Amino acid sequence: MKLPIVAYGDPVLRQRTEEIDEDYPELKQLIDNMFETMYAANGVGLAAPQIGLPIRLFVIDASPFGEDDEDGPGDPTAKDFKRVFINPILVEENGEKWAFSEGCLSIPHINEEVSRKKDVVINYLDENFEEQEESLTGLAARVVQHEYDHIEGKLFIDKLGPLKKAMLKSKLDNISKGLVRVSYKMSFPQQKKKR
């Protein structure tokens, strides 16, 4: 089932999230719904706060970044990178910072260069609640960092300078008011207040 994606301005996107356990209600269905929602919106990652749930869960399928396109070869680290991250802990962020244009399903039509470290080590539980620890690099590491920020109540626009943020203010205000066209279902915070 495709779920509405929460738009910028909703307080849930600024919450630090809670850990879950194996008894979380209908977790398998939730994970399936998150993947379906992400694919329908042409995303490569989706965190639980983006569907209104303040829990430490996100899903990623970075394989589109692994495919060659007209800009050149894809990133092989992303090619088969499909994962479920439950209660993740970002253990390390290492390497040179590098800039890449990021966007977010909760902040449609805004893409900006964001600098992040090239390598990460992340510890997490998979969908079977088995503990995993992975060292990631390149785009796989970047997508993990972006989604991890979501469960910490942070957004990629927080990494922009004050001038850039000021330039985006009216666009961001319009998103929170629902004055944006998207091809997927969204939930807009200022429309909720009117009800």
Rank of each mutant, 00 (worst) to 15 (best):
P25V: 09
G74M: 04
Y184C: 09
M167F: 15
E96F: 08
P88T: 04
I157D: 02
K165Y: 04
I31V: 15
K194Y: 04
E152R: 13
H150T: 06
N123A: 12
L179I: 13
F156D: 05
E18V: 13
D68L: 01
P25W: 04
I60N: 07
V182R: 07
V144L: 09
K82T: 13
Q190F: 12
I55A: 04
E134Y: 01
E134K: 14
M186G: 03
G45Q: 12
P162V: 04
R195F: 12
R181F: 11
R116A: 10
E96K: 14
G72R: 13
D71N: 15
I5R: 08
A141E: 08
Y184Q: 05
E22T: 08
I31W: 03
D69H: 11
R16A: 03
I31C: 03
K117D: 01
D158I: 09
A7P: 02
N174P: 00
L172C: 12
K177E: 15
K194A: 13
P88I: 08
F129D: 03
V182P: 02
I122D: 01
E147F: 11
A41L: 10
D23S: 15
Q190S: 06
I55Y: 08
A99P: 01
L172Q: 11
D75L: 00
N42T: 10
E22Y: 07
Y39Q: 03
E67K: 15
E102D: 12
E67T: 04
R56H: 00
D75K: 10
A166T: 14
Y24D: 06
E93G: 00
G153E: 06
D61Q: 06
R16H: 13
G95M: 11
A140Y: 12
E18Q: 15
V180P: 05
A47W: 09
V182G: 00
V120D: 07
E127S: 13
D61C: 01
K169S: 10
D158Y: 05
D69L: 03
